[in-house]
Each structure stands twice: as C-alpha cells, then as structure tokens.
Nucleic acid binder design. Structure first.
Lengths: 208, 208
DNA sequence: GTCTATAGAATGATAGAC
DNA sequence: GTCTATCATTCTATAGAC
C-alpha cells in the first residue's frame, strides 16, 4: 500500500503512468530506508546510503521527499498504519477464546509486532532521533490508530483510563524487554498469556 | 563520588594533588556531558559542546577520556552505580509496610529514577547511540547491579525467573510510558501501587 | 528526473608548539 | 595539560546543467 494515496481523503483520480512511477520509486526509497535503519538504528539513517541502495544519487531523493524529516514522517505514519492493520487482524482471529486467553494472544502479537522491526519500534515509540518529532499530520495518524486500539481493548473490559494506561505499560514493557534483552528469541513473548490473565483478573476484581 | 576511584579494587594509595585535580576535572566533564545529553538526547552529545561547557577546548578532553566511546562507557557505568545506590536506599525505607505496598513504593521510586534523567535512561536501557555498546567492563557493572536488584526483589517473593522477567517488564513499561507520554508528570507513577498489588497477588496465587 | 559539483556545517580525532 | 591548527570524514541540502 502506497503511503501518500492512503493519506488522500478526496476520491483519487486515476493516476497517470508518470504518477505511478513516482509512487513506486517513493515506495522503493521507503523500503530501502527501513532496511538500512534496521542495521544502523533509526538515528543512524543516512540519505546517501538510502540513495545508494535504491540506485540513485542523494540529491535525487529530494524529488520524492522534501527533507530527511519528511522521510522520517512517512516512516512514522507507515508504522502506525501497519499497526492499525495488525490490530484489525488480531481482533478478527480470537473468536472462540476466553477473553483472558484472547487478550494473551493480542499481547503476544503486539510483542511480535514490535520485535519484527527495531527501526519501526524506535521511530514509533522511542525518541531516538535527536531533534526530530513527527509533524502534526503524522502525529494525527498515530492518535487515530491508538484510538482504534483502545476500542479493540474495550472488548476485554479495558475501558477505564487508568486500566488502559496500565495495559499499555504492561504491553510496551514486555515488548521493550524482549527487544532489548532477547531480540531474536521469545523470552517475554512466552509471558504474554500470564500477563494477560494477571491484567484481566485484576481489572475484573477491581470492578467488583 | 568519583567514578574511577569506585572502579579501583586494590586499596588506593593516597592520591597526589595532581591526581585529585585530574579526577575533579574528569568529574566536571562527566557532569557537563550529563547536562548536555539531557537537552539533546544521549545520541546528540557533542564533545565540542562538552568542552565548551567545562571551559576547555575539545582536544583537551582526550587527556581525561580516550575517546567519545570511553565517555559513554563512564556514563553508562555511573548510571548503574547510581541505580545500585538507589536500590539500597529503597529497600532500607520500607520497614513497616505490607509487602505489596512496599513493592508499590519500590516501583514508584523506580519510575522516578528513570524519569529523573532521560539521558541516563537512554544510555542504560535503550540502544539510542548508533554504533555504540558498553565495553565488557561497563557491562559487567550493569550485570552486578541487576543482580543486586534481583536480590532485593526476593524479599517480595519474586524469585522465579519468569516472575522476575514479568516484574522487569511491568516496571520498565511503566517507566517507558511515563517518560514518553508524560515526561514531567506522574500519570504512570500513580499506577505503581495498583501494578504492585496486581503483580504480587498474581505471583502469590500461582504459588498456591 | 537525474545528475555533478559544491555549499555549509558539524563531527571525532591527531600533531605538535608551548 | 592545554592550546591552535588541521585532518579526514560525514552529513543535509541546494544550484544548475542536461
């Protein structure tokens, strides 16, 4: 899925071949940026390197992105759109489970989502890039996708703001530990069911 | 407390005045580095800026640190030594509380510790510096201080490795959310007692 | 759209005088 | 120990030819 068409709200007119090529190159640049950021960390990303991987010279990137910050912006937004798509998928596949067990699979999937790309995790959830923060437009996308996730959690009885904060802390903490201390393993993924039951039971108990 | 004397294992001979001045300047450099990293993020730290704050020129820093990485190493080790000292303090002041309540104060203090310095948090717990990782010596200090923390948690019945991993996930998750989303407030600090009881009760229940 | 050339700035680090 | 001078590199970004 191509970033800038996703952002369009008005019905898009059929793209010309020129526009198609433009979007495709843009997508290739983004893809190269993700792969490089995976190796160097998001803060170590270099436009020259991105250009080299795509087979362009650095100045040519400016045809597709106004600045390095704009590239970061596109990556940030893309990460949150991927999260939204993943949440939709998770909540569709928990049909016949007990709520606490279903929450366990959601948390496990969440950890895997974070683990899948260190660069994506860094740009979405940490402040790893000195001097950069998302633009208002990109930030709005993150807020929207967060809300979507919050709505999905309501199905598990997690509606109280404090409970939501507790949930995000537990889920993000599991992911952070997994990434920092066992980046290729499942040491904290395995704890997802236990954590889910612990959270679920505690919330239920406090409701009574 | 001055860093390099802490690292000495052999009984230290009385320092000459020259050595004292050297250690003092070294400490001033570290202090300046912390303050600057607080503003720019640890990854944005610049040796020229550090030198400027201390009142030296950049090359003079190399009398006190062999390289920028060595400065990072000293900051990393200092952070873990501060954590060790803080843990000792926390565990000494929980005398007359119920275990679950005492655990709540420990978690709250932990979040405050992380919140107190973003730079310290970044260098200790995230991989925010592209291309840098702690030396073997500095890493050994972090392992030792972690073990000290693990021993302190045994007093709360947290001894099972999985329970320890769950604890670190919850505690670090609360801190991460606090820093990322409410850096100057207490939105997740307030959840520390709830989280502590949730953890404590769950661990106790699973033991039976 | 892509390129070469380059501006302009910052960085970590070293050589060598004092 | 501290300095000046400088190296060598890297970086984002722009100007302008093609």
């Amino acid at each position: 899925m191509i970033f800038s068409t996703v952002l369009d709200i008005e019905p898009t007119p059929a793209p010309t071949p020129r526009q198609r090529r433009h979007e495709q190159t843009r997508a290739e640049i983004l893809d190269a940026a993700w792969r490089l950021a995976e190796e160097t960390g998001i803060a170590g990303l270099s436009l020259r390197e991105v250009a080299r991987v795509v087979g362009l010279k650095a100045p040519s990137l400016y045809t597709y992105f106004d600045s390095k910050d704009a590239l970061f912006d596109a990556m940030f937004a893309e990460g949150y759109l991927q999260l939204g798509a993943a949440v939709t998928e998770w909540t569709a596949t928990e049909a016949d489970l007990e709520p606490a067990d279903a929450l366990g699979t959601v948390i496990g999937s969440w950890i895997r989502f974070c683990q899948h790309s260190l660069a994506r995790y860094q740009i979405m959830f940490t402040r790893a890039i000195p001097g950069w923060e998302p633009s208002a437009e990109a930030y709005a996308i993150s807020v929207r996708e967060y809300q979507r996730m919050a709505e999905a959690l309501a199905a598990f009885g997690i509606t109280d703001p404090g409970d939501l904060d507790l949930y995000t802390a537990v889920a993000s903490g599991l992911a952070a530990q997994q990434i920092a201390n066992d980046p290729t393993g499942d040491r904290w993924v395995r704890l997802a069911p236990t954590a889910a039951h612990m959270l679920f039971d505690d919330i239920e108990r406090r409701k009574r």
